[in-house]
Amino acid sequence: MSKTTKALSGASQDAYFRRVLKAFPNVPDDVRDRLVQQLRREIAQVRLRTAIRRETLQGAPPPEPAQGVASTTAALPAAPAPGPFDPYSPNLIVVVRTSGREAALAALAAIDSADNLRLLAREQRLSIGADCASLAEMRAAIVTAAERRIANRKAAAS
């Protein structure tokens, strides 16, 4: 977390939720209170789960926050860093066979790096030419290669 941001907790967090919920004047006061309590519990659960995950990953417990201190160390966790790219997902042959070409192109649209598309193509044995100029061309070539691979297997099964 950068030094220009401040985590909310306890009363300040509750006040923040009440301020946001005031944008909905039709929400009765008792309902607003219940929503604030529920949000507080949800946030606490998120912190707990994150702490457990961090402990599991690092093999060491997270530091205990100081008792009774409204500390910035009890802040909301930073968004987890994205994991390494998985070149086997989506499984293009499965997607093409079960959902068709358009669905496969849509699945590939989430990958916006040429390096990752080439890695996926290589690991899934979907041969694409070196002359693909754009990401769109690469995606189309990958799906075409998957279709060719499916046809290849079908031709042999007789």
Binding site: Y88, V94, E123, Q124
Partner: peptide
């Protein structure tokens, strides 16, 4: 990963 992919297929 390549094995898992093939098994899914």
């Amino acid at each position: 990963g390549a094995e898992r992919m093939l098994l899914d297929q």
